[in-house]
Each structure stands twice: as C-alpha cells, then as structure tokens.
Design a binder for these strands. Structure first.
Lengths: 90, 90
DNA sequence: CTCCTATTTAGAAATTCATCGAAATAGATG
DNA sequence: CATCTATTTCGATGAATTTCTAAATAGGAG
C-alpha cells in the first residue's frame, strides 16, 4: 500500500462513486458498471485501480465477480490526514 | 472545494511532503523548494495546486511569500472517509 | 464440446500532469 | 530609477490517465 496509490485511486469521481455504492454491500462488476455511463471495460479498469490500491477486494462466484469495500486502508489514510490536521486523538 | 481536486492534490508525493513540512509552521516558497530536488518553478506549480485545493494559503511579506496549512478542507475529507469506512461517530 | 454470458485484456486516441529552462513580475534597496 | 532577490508564469516535452472498440478469457448450460 502507498498513500500515493490510495489518493490517486480516490481522485477519480467514478472510483469514489464505486466505493460509495459498495458501502451497501458487495456488487458484481456488471451491477457496478450499470450505474455508470462508461463502458464495462472502463469500469473494469477503475475496479482494477481500486483493487491495486487495496480499497476493494474481489471474490468470484461462478460467472460473476463480486467486489467489496476493504476499509483497512482507509484507516491508514484517516490517521495520516488526522495527523496532518494536528489532531490529538485520531 | 471538490473532493476530486483535494485527492488529486494529495496524490502527488512532493505535494504531500510540502503539507507535512508546513505542519511545523509557515514557510516561504524558497524554503519549501530547498527541501526538494525539483526546480523552484516546479515547486511553485505544486504550491499552486495545493492553493487551488484550499489545502494551503499564502501571505506575502515583502519579497517573500509564506505558505501555511489550511486544515478546514482536511476536516471534510476526514468526514467523507470516515463515512465510507462506516464509522459511527466520526 | 459448443455456445452464451460476464468480465477482463489489448491497443489506440485524447487529455491531463510533472517537469524543465527561460522569461516575466513584485517588491526592497541602493 | 536601476538593480537585486524571490517567486511565478510561459511554452515545451515526455509520461501517465481516461476512455473507447475489439478481441480474449473463464465459467456455466445445453
């Protein structure tokens, strides 16, 4: 994990929206792609960026690949930001 | 302010290091540039990106332009991330 | 095994980004 | 005013990003 990779992943609006969608539970690549105007190939690319950044993980079920939020990296980012902000007890 | 702008600003390592430097208090553009291998022109560009994202603000004192952290935007980002993480009391 | 569906990979075009050297600006000072 | 210093702006260049279409893969169903 690297902060650069994480922030880069978070800098794209489609990728942020994917993460927001996944707050509601796991979704297949197709279900995710259906929420966006971009092609499935483009969304697949975004999912891969999120996966590389360890912000999501995938599990295969038959023909479908499901994606889920991985919150552990978010914790590290939160700590970094809180420290930058000068917080006492992050 | 926009999250996209903020995360994009945070995605660059030089810019993150600038913010970390500014935790110690305000610094002039030249003092900041001295910490990096890049040219002053490049660092000036990074400072401008941080300023556009409202992560820093500047004050002129004579010949020098001082930069300071602006933590108010960090608060919004922290809240967004905490919500994504599914925190109870962010 | 062949076909169908879900998804990814490959390759390409357009855009944005990081960086530099050189020139411009802003203010202080002789 | 002429000049010096600190910093930014300009213009260019190579690298990275986003997006697409088309082709490839993986697994299930007939």
């Amino acid at each position: 994990m690297s902060f650069g990779e994480t922030f880069k992943a978070l800098s794209n609006p489609a990728r942020r929206e994917i993460l927001t969608l996944l707050k509601g539970g796991k979704l297949s690549a197709g279900e995710i792609a259906a929420h966006f105007p971009q092609t499935a190939a483009t969304i697949s690319h975004h999912l891969n960026v999120l996966k590389q950044a360890e912000l999501v993980f995938e599990t295969r079920e038959g023909n479908y690949i499901y994606y889920q939020l991985n919150t552990s990296v978010l914790e590290d980012v939160l700590l970094w930001l809180a420290d930058l902000k000068g917080e006492e007890t992050p």
